[in-house]
């Protein structure tokens, strides 16, 4: 079970309010050069199917609601990775009046990746670290999630 979990991290990408720099790098991971599918990771558009949520960009008042909604729809075990310095802390925009700051202001974050934008290698690294967390959460939470699903 845990091996399968490690070999098949399905990734959901959400752009909270990024400048698109991080998004391009995230999508670059799926191109032939980096090809994260060789690790079993595919980009999936549906929160109910996803294991890892990659968030790029800072959180503002509009994207807060959307992000929380997506996070709640994801099924356990799940991991959130903040991609880029904006998602980590707000970066150069952190004092802006319309922003809340990093992703961790809205939902619990497991992996932080800095860089503006981070290199695709770093994003793959985020997925690998996310997988480790996923395994740990899977071990701890299996009993709990079985209860939750039967309710």
């Amino acid at each position: 079970m845990n091996l399968s979990r490690a070999r098949s991290p399905w990734v959901l990408h959400y752009d909270a309010s990024s400048c698109n720099g991080c998004d391009i790098e995230t999508v670059a991971c799926m191109t032939p050069l980096y090809d994260i599918e060789r690790f079993g990771a595919i980009s999936i558009g549906c929160p109910k199917h996803a294991d890892i949520l990659l968030v790029t960009g800072t959180i503002n008042h509009k994207s807060l609601r959307v992000l929380r909604n997506i996070y709640e729809q994801m099924t356990e075990p799940k991991v959130v990775a903040a991609i880029g310095i904006c998602a980590t802390s707000g970066g150069v925009f952190h004092q802006s009046y319309n922003l809340l700051g990093g992703v961790d202001k809205a939902i619990p974050v497991d992996v932080y990746i800095s860089g503006c934008p981070p290199r695709p290698e770093a994003i793959i690294d985020a997925i690998v670290m996310g997988v480790e967390k996923l395994k740990k959460k899977g071990k701890e939470g299996l009993a709990g999630s079985a209860e939750a699903s039967s309710g």
């Binding site: 079970m1 091996l3 399968s4 979990r5 070999r7 098949s8 399905w10 079993g40 294991d51 099924t75 356990e76 075990p77 899977g138 299996l142 999630s145 939750a148 699903s149």
Partner: peptide
Amino acid sequence: YDVIKLFGKES
């Protein structure tokens, strides 16, 4: 791998 993983996820 995908299907076994899905069996271990919250349903």
